[in-house]
């Protein structure tokens, strides 16, 4: 059997392992696989806590395998492999984390029904396949509510169904939501109107009744509107 001199003393710039390191890595990985598995199956914790728990175990196991299987960090300095690995992780955190943050903000507070209702209302889709959606077919007149220095003028707006209501904000960014503070009601699919300084947002009044609205950021700024049939 040819036993060629294959491994020079110099470690080729890559890191090598011993049987011991592989066994330790293997056993630790087994442990960090079974623990989160058991936790999930038995629902020892739930919700966000559970998510963070299993992610934590996953990250630690990844570090274990990178250390004991890939032997990262044990080569001669400067360790370029390590540098590239850390840079890649940084990029990943930005790309993945950023994507998740962006999408979270889109989904904020909107149930699927709200979304559908809002779209129908915005686009005046009053019927689908012969069935009425509740959205308006013909738009009436526009009413304007002006918010300045925390004051709402007029405090009460009386409208007719299928009129529109415009909120004009002359103060710093406001987040107008419906109902009385601390409630966040939904009106015709609208959950929240974020209105920056000097801008306005308009909603179609497709629901009849008496309604309140307030600024989620400064609940003292509030008003009402009536929608007559």
């Amino acid at each position: 059997m040819s036993h060629q001199h294959v491994a020079p003393q110099h470690n080729n710039g890559s890191e090598h392992g011993t049987v011991k390191s592989y066994v330790i890595g293997f056993l630790l990985s087994l442990l960090f696989t079974f623990i989160p598995y058991v936790i999930v199956v038995n629902q020892v914790v739930t919700g966000t806590k559970l998510l963070i728990t299993i992610l934590g175990f996953g990250v630690i196991q990844a570090i274990i395998q990178v250390t004991f299987f890939l032997h990262l960090g044990r080569g001669p300095k400067p360790n370029w492999n390590q540098f590239f690995f850390v840079s890649t992780i940084a990029i990943i955190l930005i790309v993945v984390g950023g994507s998740i943050i962006i999408i979270q903000n889109l989904h904020y507070n909107m149930s699927p029904q709200d979304k559908v209702k809002k779209i129908a209302n915005d686009e005046n889709i009053y019927q689908v396949g012969g069935k009425e959606t509740g959205a308006c077919k013909v738009i009436g007149k526009n009413h304007i509510v002006v918010i300045r220095n925390g004051e709402v003028k007029p405090l009460l707006t009386t409208t007719k169904k299928c009129d529109t209501l415009s909120f004009v904000n002359n103060d710093d960014k406001r987040e107008i939501t419906f109902g009385a503070h601390p409630n966040h009601d939904v009106y015709a699919g609208e959950t929240e109107l974020v209105i920056r300084k000097g801008r306005s947002k308009t909603i179609t009044l497709s629901e009849v009744g008496t309604f309140q609205f307030h600024d989620h950021l400064q609940p003292g700024t509030a008003g009402n509107f009536i929608v007559k049939p």
Binding site: M1, S2, H3, Q4, H5, V6, A7, H16, G17, T18, V19, Y22, V23, G25, F26, S29, L30, T33, Q65, F69
Partner: peptide, 19 residues
């Protein structure tokens, strides 16, 4: 996971020249 382990052991053998 086990295959990753056996792969590691295989590399030790390879570096020793044990065909």
């Amino acid at each position: 996971l086990t295959s990753s382990f056996t792969c590691g052991i295989a590399m030790i053998a390879a570096r020793k020249g044990d065909k």
